[in-house]
Design a binder for these strands. Structure first.
Lengths: 230, 230
DNA sequence: CAAATCCTCAATTGAGCACTTAAATAGTAC
DNA sequence: GTACTATTTAAGTGCTCAATTGAGGATTTG
């Protein structure tokens, strides 16, 4: 059956199509795993193209192209920093969108849970520490050491109150800096970052009492909890 | 330069790639304007494939294909209703995701605002009524008539307290049902639905005091405000 | 000004998507 | 059980996208 529509209706439909296609461009920008990895890293602070490329395992040219896509739809912005160009999330709402996407994916698609386990290792052997619990223990007691295992630039860009920075790569040779009479709570970039899980495994093996924070710094910040920089 | 990675790192990277590709599948589902139109309509209540197709101007076969995509990633679910099949958003979080996407698109992309104006007509001539204001006036006074101009099925599926239903198509011939001593506040499916704007134009021309609600029923419900059904 | 360093662009390749038409399926209603 | 109808699937076409490679810009630093 052929649709008969008036001229006005047809032009209105064309306008609606154009509008929703424009919304869809944002979806397109979110429709690539590499771009989502980039967003996830950028949620922890700005990066040069080269660093982003090396951290994500993407080639520089390809990373640059993905960043153009993200920039065109307004998800990231850039600024020059000496000889390099730093990209950053355009604003906190972008992180909310990524988190929302993640959350729906986890709730609605069993495959995601399986792949997360495959990537992070079965991490549900030890219950993670919730944000509220950690905040309470930080305020009212001194029985916990908060450990930031991200690269030190990210720590500098913002970290949990009283957190100690030991990047994952240095953890094994700096074990003596950690107390054995407190519980260690490790955190990293978020629930889909492997750093904290790896740190927990290392510390557990070395005999420490240790758990991971339920997610990472970006989520802590997004929850409106205090973040210290510098 | 060729990347050298250890076997363990390589497999971990593969797992991470797979995980983020899985997230990206959700993005892919959101990467098409027609599918976003479908989600926007479904936020107002379930629909058969045929109705969805006719309301969006998509062919039935094509609508069915889009619905398969949405269903595979868990954004919609379906159930049989007599001889037809009804599709609905899988849960309220899906609407949150769509709203979040919309919101970032509007804030970050000037093109979206222009296209919205092109579709809806310059609607900023009259300030829309906020949800809080409407709620207050509904509770404490009797100076406002709330008008639902969506199709009557959607009104039946859920509407604002004390709202009167006059579908847009019937509005011109039912003008006498509306009071002239109150302000009329019209609402529809959301900020990117043209119904309320068209109703405002019709009523304004007929001499009514009328404004539109800032957005639609789904946003009202998502804000946790009271919704009446039946 | 020139060299060095980063980043972006352009061209290419192969893969995947949207939409149409036409045929098949799966329920319901009688 | 049969006919009917709404929905789904299949096949085909034109288009868009991701990634690679190599060349070309832009900006700082010497």
């Amino acid at each position: 059956m052929v649709q008969r529509v008036s001229g006005a209706e047809a032009s209105s439909r064309a306008a609606k199509t154009a509008l929703f296609d424009e919304f869809a461009r944002l979806g397109q920008a979110l429709a690539n795993g590499r771009r989502l990895e980039i967003l996830d890293v950028l949620a922890n602070g700005e990066r040069t193209v080269e660093r982003l490329a090396s951290e994500t395992g993407i080639s520089v040219a390809n990373a640059s192209q993905h960043l153009q896509v993200l920039r065109e739809v307004g998800l990231v912005r850039r600024r020059r920093e000496g000889t390099s160009i730093c990209y950053a999330l355009h604003d906190p709402q972008v992180f909310d969108l990524w988190r929302n996407l993640r959350s729906v994916a986890v709730q609605r698609r069993a495959e995601v849970g399986q792949l997360a386990d495959a990537y992070l290792g079965a991490r549900h052997t030890l219950e993670p520490v919730g944000r509220a619990e950690l905040l309470r223990r930080l305020k009212h007691g001194d029985d916990v050491l908060v450990l930031d295992v991200r690269p030190s630039e990210e720590y500098a860009a913002g970290h949990l109150p009283r957190a100690v920075s030991i990047p994952l790569a240095e953890l094994r040779r700096r074990l003596r800096e950690l107390p054995r009479d407190k519980e260690v709570v490790a955190y990293c970039r978020g629930p889909y970052c492997a750093f904290a899980d790896k740190a927990v495994r290392v510390l557990h093996q070395a005999g420490f009492r240790v758990r991971r924070l339920v997610d990472g710094l970006p989520e802590w910040r997004a929850a409106g909890l205090p973040v210290v920089s510098g």
